[in-house]
């Protein structure tokens, strides 16, 4: 299978939330009771049992007109995924589709990925002591089906296709929309496999990670300090061995009057 991309086009989205429901249904996740806080955005953020939400947001344009904009938030499926780097057990992994899969059976609930993800996507669930996130419906992909959210979308705001084709579709849509329209995802973390065509400039969108990168802390921890700690310890072991051979151990003082025989170095 080729590398794939799921494309979200917010200009075509009506926020019907069919995708959100389809996601719940396919993944067999119950909804939790929430409270009305004055927005259709419900639940307000991703949860351990809610892998995607539609953001609802009022924005004022330069003429003072109020406009409603939407955004589908879920795992971005990074090519350089900090969660995969941080995961100690391989529960998070890259697939041949370019998506980031999650095997809950291997998850130990350490929450490394929760802290590592630049999009703050993985969510921890106390009851199962595990982390959950969108896996792009890997079970469907393996059976030549599209992700459930794409399947449910009635307006064509969600598309699923091969990477190159989707990037081209996105570029064409940006041209078509004109103005501030732009793409989001392809330019970050070595390319995401969930990407956006946005009508507005990126900073306009609430809670959208601006210029996301694999956090420096993750690089310092996983790519630098972890291997260095083995290297340093190895150096010490070799150094100690050489010290023993070349300099020799520090033997007890045998000239002391009460001293018995010195215990020699083995």
């Amino acid at each position: 299978m080729a590398e794939m991309i799921k494309l979200y086009d917010d200009a075509k989205c009506t926020a019907c939330r069919g995708c959100q429901l389809a996601c719940k249904q396919w993944n067999e996740k119950k909804a939790k009771q929430t409270t009305n806080y004055g927005s259709y955005q419900n639940p307000p953020t991703l949860q351990s049992n809610t892998y995607m939400i539609i953001h609802f947001q009022d924005v004022k344009d330069t003429k003072g007109n109020v406009k409603w904009i939407f955004r589908k938030e879920s795992c971005m499926h990074c090519a350089d995924a900090a969660c995969v780097t941080a995961c100690p057990t391989g529960a998070l992994y890259h697939t041949e589709f370019g998506t980031v899969g999650l095997n809950p059976d291997r998850c130990i609930g350490c929450k490394n990925c929760v802290a590592a993800c630049p999009f703050e996507v993985p969510k921890y669930e106390q009851e199962t002591d595990r982390v959950y996130k969108c896996d792009m419906c890997e079970s469907r992909l393996r059976n030549n089906l599209t992700p459930a959210c794409v399947k449910a979308c009635p307006t064509g705001a969600l598309k699923w296709g091969e990477k190159d084709a989707m990037i081209k579709v996105a570029a064409d849509r940006v041209k078509e929309l004109g103005g501030d329209a732009n793409t989001y995802g392809d330019q970050y973390v070595s390319g995401t496999h969930f990407m956006y065509v946005l009508q507005e400039k990126q900073p306009v969108y609430a809670a959208l990670a601006q210029n996301p990168k694999v956090p420096l802390a993750v690089v310092a921890w996983k790519n630098l300090l972890n291997p260095l700690s083995l290297l340093a310890a190895g150096g010490i072991v070799v150094g100690s061995f050489l010290h023993y051979l070349i300099h020799g151990p520090k033997l007890p003082d045998e000239t002391g009057e009460t001293t018995k025989k010195a215990e020699g170095g083995e």
């Binding site: 802290a115 590592a116 802390a217 921890w221 300090l225 260095l228």
Partner: peptide, 13 residues
């Protein structure tokens, strides 16, 4: 929170 991880790794080092 993110920097706790490299600090933990530094301590191990």
């Amino acid at each position: 929170l993110r920097w706790m991880y490299p600090l933990h790794a530094l301590g191990f080092f």
